[in-house]
Design a protein around this nucleic acid. Sequence first.
DNA 1: GAGTGGTCTAGACCACCAA
DNA 2: TGGTGGTCTAGACCACTCA
Lengths: 245, 245
Amino acid sequence: MIDKYYNSPSYKPLYDQIKVLLTQSLIGGEWRPGDMIPSEIELAGRYKVSQGTVRKAIDALATENILIRRQGKGTFVATHSAEGMKLRFLRLTSVDGQKELLQNEFISCTKGKADVHMGQVLDLKAGASTIEIKRLLTFSGRPLIFDHIIVPAAPFKGLNGNKVEENNGSMYSLYESEFGVRMIRAEERLKAVAAKGEVAKALGLKEGEPLLSIERVSFTYGDKPMEWRLGLCITDNHHYMNELE
Amino acid sequence: MIDKYYNSPSYKPLYDQIKVLLTQSLIGGEWRPGDMIPSEIELAGRYKVSQGTVRKAIDALATENILIRRQGKGTFVATHSAEGMKLRFLRLTSVDGQKELLQNEFISCTKGKADVHMGQVLDLKAGASTIEIKRLLTFSGRPLIFDHIIVPAAPFKGLNGNKVEENNGSMYSLYESEFGVRMIRAEERLKAVAAKGEVAKALGLKEGEPLLSIERVSFTYGDKPMEWRLGLCITDNHHYMNELE
DNA sequence: GAGTGGTCTAGACCACCAA
DNA sequence: TGGTGGTCTAGACCACTCA
């Protein structure tokens, strides 16, 4: 199981192997979001390595926001239901600095089929069943974002408009609490586009006014894509913040 | 100098203290971009700590892209002149995937004064001298980005249009090689705006067409802001990529 | 072969938290 | 007071690079 011998043909550092084992326990549901995982010393015993090696594996998962360390308490599986994590992937900030809460205005939830492109994006066969959600996010009464969300139907069997509304639009905590799907990372592609049609109407804009288009694909454990999302945002009083290092 | 005793009122981990000392040597120019810094063992001796502690400090600087480790060779000060680092902060990618090189079309380089807002952004007194550069970046012959750059005049004494053109618009490697200013991180704010005036003309657009506005502030060692930049981008065939974790 | 960073261990002690 | 994560050390050995 554990292979510490360097000359092995498929040599990998021990802490990488431990990291894989920990990830498998997460995927397998041995520890669920919010749970405390065993202590470093216990894990060291289980895997027959030193505490320092386990520590390095946990450190890696902690910097990826998959685990959360708390001195004196333990190490926990990260969860989207924790306060402050609900909008983890939302980078939009009001120009005057405050990160206010948004209101969710549900529009529709329908069944669909993945076309070839969406099949590639979500790693599905073309024609596979999907669920599509449209909604409007408003900020102090004014429309801000028009969201179009597509997820594969299979892992989200039973997802419907009621559940979205009950959850007040916090999709990620819904995915996690109802379907056991935790998103760990996302890729975004941004463009500037002109408002038109349904979207312009919902946002109360004239045709042709500029909108920030944010296309996002979110991934769960094992880099499996589980959600496609297109957000069209009015950026008169908000901007998308990003830090480059 | 080094304080490893935990009960000290201003307790900080040893590796953080080492990190500060290393950063000071970088600011002071003891090691310049591209240089190899002393080996871990040598630094451990100099600071009277163990190799592991030095390693942890270097690890931190390496994940911040300030130092670069190379097994078997040594640890080096990161540099913008290295190939592949020239466009380090440019997140724009063509839709069909290729990360092509851009052509730089110089427009102007003028002297100016910081207004109150720019003073705050660049940590200058209002009225301090600045240098402003405007340019157009083109991609296979077609305009792509209109850049407006403002830097404080003092640290960049002698910066002019010729130098920008000689450098083919690679501003960061110019700052570094000519003025010893290395940028280590940047903050960006993105919006969608409508093209107008000078910019619309330069980019060959009609008034009102959507543009991606990227406002960037870049920082050198010690989080000192050294450059403000506004890039207005045509995103018909390009998008801004971002990874969220 | 000499020198560098990379991995792994074992153990000591500290800081934080909860009961 | 006991358990957790956090820091620090000393030392062994491996992998990579270059002369």
